[in-house]
Nucleic acid binder design. Structure first.
Lengths: 217, 217
DNA sequence: GTCTATAGGCTGATAGAC
DNA sequence: GTCTATCAGCCTATAGAC
């Protein structure tokens, strides 16, 4: 079906690999939905194929096994995670830096709730895939940034709050808007969380945490 | 096999219903473990029966279906949830009341992590079972307690922080110690979270949130 | 009340025609 | 490269002997 590249090796339309790339992307996107909604065991390759609009056999053709597909989805999520971590350095202003970090994490919860839920499911399951990442990359990141927070505290820019537990607070308060979305909608009586809800959330979390850490603004 | 009650109706050993009650309890406990570790779809009745030390057929004999067993587990969890909510009333002292509430929620995360994880799984799945509870009991609780927080704010006892979002902060920061236990152990480099870790967590969350809400102590 | 044996359905995965 | 047809295994649930 695909039209090959011409004699010069240049790519025309439907070049080999184009369909492949598009189908892989379709499957990955569908898989993200289904894994987020049903968890690893609850997700079926049939449901993923249906959502992608492809026959089930193609899922196995492109990714081999369900487990490999899950890994591919997890990998794409981890990339996003690292981006969201952003820069926290000694010279930057605590209020601005932490405020920006909190808002970035919250925006991520809003824009990529599926990624957040898959991550949450993976951790609750005991992180069979992500265990290494948590013990290396994430741990190193926290160690590194903790140093910065301690320097801020020494310089009198903030209270001496335990850095690791402070990060746990920031992560949990922001991720809960993706993972526990249903609960918040029920409590707030919304069909969907609105712009205003997210603004109130951002303001509440930022105000409480910055003030709670003794960071002047 | 069971020895019946004697002629006076008094219960001797192995009275009818004793075995039933004990086996039901064994199955419920096993189910809590397996549902927490694997999620609803990942849990199998065989795994639950194995952990309970009973043949698989007994699970169905006592609870009928897997779904009914899951509901029974969820019901027992919700009872615990409501207990943990405790009393927050207008006359009580904000610092003491909220501090106590935060510590109670954190203690619950430590003592009943399985219940917390099952609850988290249920919410992430879209709360098929708990939806009604969230929209009624939980919503009413938040509405009720929000009134108290607003009164505290009007009386100058705390900042006018949005009550619902403040509760979301308290829930997420405390529950994360159960749900994301693996992540914290990886970051802190622990095999298990220690007494000291939980004390640091309690102090950090309480200090930041109370100070962040402008509650004097 | 208990438990073995088994039915019936769904799942991940693949063979093989196109 | 694509997709239909199909398999082997596991899952929930139950029938029926004890």
């Amino acid at each position: 079906m695909a039209v090959s590249a011409d004699s010069a090796g240049q790519v025309k339309r439907n070049a080999p690999g184009r369909v492949r790339q598009r189908n892989r992307a379709k499957i990955l996107q569908a898989a993200e939905h289904v894994f987020a909604e049903r968890g690893y065991d609850g997700a079926t390759t049939a449901a993923i194929a249906d959502r992608a609009g492809l026959p089930k056999a193609n899922v196995h053709y492109y990714f081999g096994t369900k487990s490999a597909l899950y890994r591919a989805v997890i990998d794409s999520i981890i990339e996003l995670w690292l981006e969201a971590f952003g820069d926290i350095s000694e010279d930057s202003d605590p209020a601005e830096t932490l405020g920006h970090y909190i808002r970035a994490k919250l925006a991520h919860s809003r824009e990529r709730p599926l990624a957040s839920r898959i991550f949450a499911n993976e951790i609750i399951r005991g992180a069979p895939i992500l265990s290494d990442y948590l013990k290396t990359d994430l741990r190193d990141w926290v160690t590194d940034k903790s140093r910065v927070l301690r320097q801020w505290a020494n310089a009198g820019k903030m209270d001496p709050v335990d850095p690791a537990h402070l990060f746990f607070m920031i992560w949990s308060t922001t991720q809960t808007y993706a993972d526990f979305d249903v609960q918040m909608r029920a409590v707030l009586g919304r069909q969907r969380l609105t712009d205003e809800d997210f603004e109130t959330a951002a303001a509440t979390i930022t105000d409480v945490i910055l003030k709670g850490c003794g960071i002047a603004r």
